[in-house]
């Protein structure tokens, strides 16, 4: 591109907009469906379809372990995958602040292209708007994803049953703490990185190996604690979590101690919660551990019948010294704009 910065012209629909589409977006997203450049993408799908949409406004837009581009792809891919579906196609909408350096946009778009390739999805349609300086913060991206549901009823937050095992694919809080530390300029003793990753390949293997999977959820904003509370509420059950079993990387634990944060409430962008009947727990863990993104998979808790000390919708935490307390929902924001 000839200009070093995004100008308002690029959102005009005229020639400069066309250049931006062909030289940046089409080049990095390269696929035959997008390349027709018709008003809509023509898609062929089988069976029931899972669909999800999400807006990404993370600040800063580039961070250790990822950037807003791969986040926008993986976040939506993962949401679609949590229905046990195979994500196929993404759309993307860009809102760009006038003056964004062209090389930054190129890097982000290239990162989206790579993430889509890694996840095995095609970005088939999109839209670009440029807004005057100050009307947006650098770059906002919205993606919508669709995928083919493999099995009905699909795994759901409503399906957790008393006696089920609560499994986690890996460590908690990496993304949330990385963003928080960067944004606040807080020097940390140990380096941390976002865990931003696609989970759809691991989900496909899980669905293949264990059709009895009851619930799949990715604990993004609000973290493990909030997501488990949602599941307990939707399924009308109680859940107990063993704190000592929840994996937390040393850098995240140290950062949380300094900042007074709880890793169980921090966002994750490449982890999932899998709830299965206890007899399938070992098999599910082995399946997850065969993928790099699930190498740290462990059982962290159990689904309980409500009424035995815990009410319907409540989540309890068993602490390392054997105490027990509620693990409640996050009240308001722990930190703004983390994804």
């Amino acid at each position: 591109m000839s200009d070093n910065y995004i100008l308002l012209d690029y959102g005009s629909g005229g020639k400069s907009a066309q250049r931006l589409v062909s030289q940046v977006f089409v080049r990095h997203f390269a696929n035959p469906v997008l390349e027709t450049l018709d008003d809509a993408a023509l898609l062929h799908m089988n069976g029931p379809i899972a669909m999800s949409t999400d807006g990404y406004t993370v600040d800063p837009i580039e961070f250790p372990g990822g950037d807003i581009g791969c986040l926008a792809v993986n976040g939506t891919v993962n949401d679609v995958a949590m229905l046990g579906a195979v994500p196929k196609y993404l759309s993307c909408g860009f809102i760009i602040e006038e003056g964004l350096p062209m090389d930054v946009l190129e890097r982000i778009v290239a990162s989206m292209g790579n993430a889509a390739k890694k996840a095995g999805v095609l970005i088939v349609t999109g839209d670009t708007k440029v807004v005057p300086k100050g009307a947006a913060d650098k770059l906002f991206i919205t993606t919508t994803g669709i995928g083919e549901v493999q099995r009905t009823p699909a795994p759901s937050g409503h399906n957790a049953k008393p006696g089920d095992a609560v499994l986690l694919s890996g460590s908690m809080g990496d993304h949330g703490l990385t963003i928080m530390a960067l944004r606040e300029g807080l020097p940390l003793e140990m380096e941390t990185r976002s865990d931003c990753a696609p989970l759809n390949h691991m989900v496909a293997a899980l669905m293949q190996a264990i059709p009895q999977v009851h619930t799949l959820r990715d604990p993004t904003r609000g973290g493990l604690a909030t997501t488990l509370n949602e599941i307990a509420g939707q399924s009308g059950v109680a859940i107990e979590v063993e704190e000592s079993q929840v994996p937390v990387n040393p850098g995240v634990a140290a950062g949380c101690a300094v900042l007074g944060l709880d890793p169980l409430y921090l966002a994750n962008e490449g982890k999932l919660i899998c709830i299965v009947p206890q007899e399938f727990a070992e098999q599910a863990l082995a399946t997850m551990r065969s993928f790099p993104e699930g190498a740290g998979a462990v059982q962290v808790g159990t689904v309980l019948e409500p009424g035995k000390g815990l009410q319907q919708g409540q989540v309890a935490l068993r602490t390392p010294m054997g105490g027990r307390r509620l693990l409640g929902m996050l009240e308001g924001e722990q930190l703004p704009r983390i994804c």
């Binding site: 935490l317 068993r318 602490t319 010294m321 054997g322 105490g323 027990r324 307390r325």
Partner: peptide
Amino acid sequence: IFRSGLRSL
């Protein structure tokens, strides 16, 4: 006292 579960013990 609450977070550590000490209260329940």
